[in-house]
Amino acid sequence: MSYLIAFVVGGLICAIGQVILDRTKLTPGHVMVIMVVSGAILAGFGLYQPLVKFAGAGAAIPVSNFGYVIVEGVLRELKMQGAFGALTGVFELAGSVIAASIFFGFIFAAFFRPKS
């Protein structure tokens, strides 16, 4: 069951992205940015967490999750240590994905070359 919900919710988020791509002149880079900002805003309204709870990877795998985990980290640190938490919390949860993408990005780019 968790697979089906993840499939449907993740698929729907991507479908929204596709509508933006086809209906506007925006590029995939723009769509990714729109997604992370939307994720952050939804998190601000407290709506993204329930979505992750419900859909699992369906909400956690799209990049919109990136905006959400940054807001979560920021809020956690704000509670613990006040205003500085707005910055110290940024990569608390999001850091691992950025670290992974830089590390794996470097390794694979070092070993492969574009094929055309």
Binding site: L21, T27, P28, P114, K115, S116
Partner: peptide, 18 residues
């Protein structure tokens, strides 16, 4: 050349773009 033009005018060729 397709690939040299792509990287200059558009995107790296391995980038997932429709």
């Amino acid at each position: 050349h397709f690939d040299s033009a792509e990287r200059q005018y558009r995107y790296p060729v391995e980038l997932g773009v429709q």
